[in-house]
């Protein structure tokens, strides 16, 4: 069961950063591989669309 965690703790992090760009920049400064997601609210906050997207995307 703990193999998954040991893998996380003993390997370099490869990060997807969703949100604050600062966080990406600080990871880059630590030489961590990071991919920034320039996130914005899905479907402009339209809940019906968000529910559909959850099912389809």
């Amino acid at each position: 069961m703990s193999e998954n965690f040991e893998e996380l703790l003993s390997n370099p992090l490869v990060v997807i950063n969703l949100g604050l760009i600062k966080f990406s920049e600080s990871l880059e400064k630590q030489s961590v591989e990071v991919l920034q997601v320039d996130w914005s609210p899905p479907a402009d906050g339209d809940q019906e669309m968000i529910d559909l997207l959850d099912a389809l995307l």
Binding site: S40, D44, L52, L56
Partner: peptide, 8 residues
Amino acid sequence: IRKVVQTN
């Protein structure tokens, strides 16, 4: 269409 709606 999913990406269009998602990203607005």
